[in-house]
Design a protein around this nucleic acid. Structure first.
Length: 665
RNA sequence: GGCGAGAUAGCUCAGUAGGUAAGAGCGCAGGAUUCAUAAUCCUGAGGUCGCGGGUUCGAUUCCCGCUCUCGCCA
């Protein structure tokens, strides 16, 4: 079978982050590597998406040209992917003349076939920047709540959904000047007319459960004609004499990049016609790996364009879209700098790349959004990758080394069957695009091996017997050298094969319960494949990679009015006595002196303060909190403590002592 | 506002074409072990499967409503 595997074309106006990696590039790479290991013919391509209004706007913001923007990011994107081991056969770009040519021919072909129509539309124009503005690049006063920084599509303050025309005093986010309305004529793709053909295609395919409903949703609502041209000076010119100043819409031409990049790959190999093996051949399976934001474009718009051209193009066989990866509970956001960028990770932890691949595969957002936390990053590496997988490898290799490093391998049948079954399971899960499930199966295999080793306990056997037992596990290690390759091809898998002295094997062989090798000879004392991630190393990575705190950036602060705040009566009090409450390990009974005499307060601070240390100290007291009985003691109000690192409580008090009962304002 | 997705053990997630054992990994507790990067193995505790209704002999699983999160569209 011949496969064309693609990963979403990254937009050349910013760096890649771990969410992109987990969403599209990593699964695509694992899949492509797996197919190659099975001996399939695979072409794996990607490239920079270099057109579109966001690049123009970015150029304006940075006071430079679109060309300068893409020339900065195109190499950065390619290097990021390559260094993470994304095994692309070709990384292209949509400013390639081949791509321009192809896109223009597609446009003309669709025009000729009657699938395009002209329409007049009103758009907003920034006269100073000489560019049309997308809705969200227009700000103004919200007509509902009066918020002055509402966006043209939505008011962040009151949540109202707006269109730019609703805004009072609209202005351009780029220049601050009021935008002008301009009428212009654009070409629309008749998706409405193409819908029956698209539906026929969609119904022939099998979609992932997170993809199918999205498609059905669109089809049920009915596809609408979609503008495929724009008034911009950056992009692929509309190839018609009377259309100066108009370019093709980026979502019209970017997917065609999959074709043009294949053409460029073929040309680079000196066989220009070979692109047709993939794109004009129904026996080729085309598989697009993307994030969920691209589902519609890949499952409906792109197939619609290919169908409309009516020239026998191969349609996508599968679009295994992933959901999004969050970071420490919040959306990844480049503009808020809440992100782990790949090029920065490469700089901060160049020797921890397979580890990143491992964790992102385990956390892959295959059916729903997932959350990346540094804590989990460390725990997955230390407890799963190192403790279970690479420790098993090291365990077996050191045993072998101890018994001479050389042996005949006669694996027992049970071990061979376990290995073969695992290889089949892992393969089946990869073919179902269940990458984290495949990784789980590897962990499971390692657990079975650890268990078997513990049970047979060769270290208790006389050496001449022990060698044979340990050597039988060499078959498993030889298999691991290949099984791990799709997931961790940069260091772990090749290093294992090197220590073992075996090559990559064909995956199909792993699925057979026949021995993979007859003898084993280690050349050197084994070294651990992956060092554990120490708390220090983790902290250092965190500080390098997450320079800004995100919490304050959250727009959803629940404001209260001054009147509401004044309802809370705060006083400085002096603590007169403090004692533990019996049968409670957290509560202290505290007597305080306030403006109107003494009161009793119960505080859950026994694990942070010795009672004696509090006596005579001052604190802040919430005087009008409704009384409550805790462990039989009536608590009148509450003392304030700051929550420090690790949940440690620290008393809040005036800087210098004041008379008890002094108000806090 | 319309549409869609999600809400399951402390954490990250599977799962159930409706039915007496609700699962994994991590974490935690106890035990075993010491070949291995204090790694491994065994045992165990932990869940009114988001909230409220309904259908049913029976619902975490179906239907309706609600809340929260996310996405798409306008």
């Amino acid at each position: 079978m011949r496969y064309l595997v693609t990963a979403a074309l990254p937009y050349a106006n910013g760096p890649l982050h771990i969410g992109h990696l987990a969403g599209a590039y990593l699964p695509a790479d694992i899949f492509a590597r797996y197919l190659r290991l099975r001996g399939e013919e695979v072409l794996f391509i990607c490239g920079s998406d270099e057109h579109g209004v966001a690049i123009t706007l970015r150029a304006w913001q940075e006071r430079t040209t679109p060309q300068a923007i893409i020339d900065k990011y195109h190499p950065l994107l390619e290097e990021s992917l390559r260094r993470l081991g994304i095994s692309l056969d070709y990384y292209g770009r949509t400013t390639d003349p081949l791509h321009h040519d192809l896109s223009q021919r597609f446009f003309l072909r669709l025009l000729e076939k009657g699938w395009l129509e002209k329409r007049k539309v009103e758009q907003f124009w920034d006269p100073q920047a000489s560019t049309f503005l997308p809705d969200r690049y227009i700000v103004g006063t919200c007509p509902h709540c009066g918020y002055e920084e509402a966006y043209g599509d939505q008011c962040e303050k009151c949540g109202a959904l707006l269109s730019p025309a609703d805004l009072i005093h609209p202005r351009s986010r780029l220049t601050g000047t009021p935008p002008e309305k301009r009428l212009s004529e654009q070409f629309y793709l008749r998706l409405d007319a193409l819908q029956p053909l698209v539906e026929a295609y969609v119904s022939r395919c099998h979609w992932k459960p997170n993809v199918g409903p999205v498609i059905q949703n669109w089809l049920r609502a009915g596809l609408a004609p979609r503008a495929i041209t724009r008034d911009l000076d950056w992009g692929i010119p509309v190839p018609l004499p009377d259309m100066a100043g108009k370019v093709l819409y980026v979502w019209f031409e970017a997917p065609l990049g999959y074709i043009s990049i294949t053409q460029r790959w073929a040309a680079s190999r000196g066989a220009p016609h070979r692109w047709a093996d993939f794109w004009l051949n129904p026996d080729t399976r085309i598989i697009h790996f993307i994030g969920k934001d691209n589902i519609v474009f890949h499952t409906l718009l792109f197939p619609a364009i290919l169908i409309a051209a009516d020239e026998g193009y191969t349609l996508p066989a599968a679009v295994p879209a992933n959901e999004f990866l969050n970071l420490e509970g919040q959306k990844i956001s480049t503009s808020r700098r809440w992100t782990i960028d790949i090029h920065e990770y490469l700089r901060a932890a160049p020797h921890r790349l397979d580890e990143l691949r491992f964790v992102l595969t385990a956390l892959m957002p295959q059916t729903r959004d997932r959350d990346f936390t540094w804590e989990e990053f460390a725990s997955r590496i230390n407890n799963e990758l190192v403790a279970t997988i690479t420790n098993l490898i090291h365990r077996i290799l050191t045993l072998l080394w101890r018994y001479g490093g050389e042996a005949t391998v006669i694996p027992e049948g049970k071990l061979l069957h376990t290995r073969a079954e695992s290889a089949r399971t892992i393969g089946a899960r990869l073919e179902a695009y269940d990458f984290s499930g495949a990784l789980e199966a590897i962990l499971h295999l390692a657990q079975l091996a650890n268990k078997g080793l513990t049970e047979s306990a060769p270290w208790h056997l006389p050496p001449e017997k022990a060698v044979g037992v340990v050597a039988s596990y060499a078959d498993l290690l030889a298999a691991m050298g290949t099984l791990l390759e799709p997931f961790m091809p940069l260091h772990v898998a090749p290093k294992l094969r090197e220590q073992l002295g075996v090559d990559l094997l064909n995956w199909r062989r792993l699925e057979d319960p026949t021995p993979l090798l007859s003898s084993i000879k280690l050349k050197a004392a084994p070294q651990p494949l992956v060092p554990k991630l120490s708390p220090d190393e983790l902290r250092s990575m965190q500080t390098q990679l997450l320079p800004t705190a995100p919490a304050s950036a959250s727009p959803s602060v629940a404001y209260i009015s001054i009147e509401e705040f004044q309802k809370v009566q705060l006083q400085v009090v002096t603590i007169r006595s403090a004692e533990r409450i019996p049968k409670s390990d957290k509560l202290l009974k505290i007597t305080i002196e306030a403006a109107d005499g003494t009161h009793t307060v119960v505080s859950g601070i026994a694990q942070h303060y010795e009672p004696e240390a509090l006596i005579g100290q001052q604190a802040i007291w919430v005087a009008n909190l409704a009384p409550r009985t805790l462990r039989g003691v009536s608590s009148e109000g509450m003392l304030l403590f700051a929550e420090g690192e690790g949940g440690k409580l620290i008393r809040v008090a005036p800087e210098t002592p004041v008379p008890p009962g002094s108000p806090v304002q």
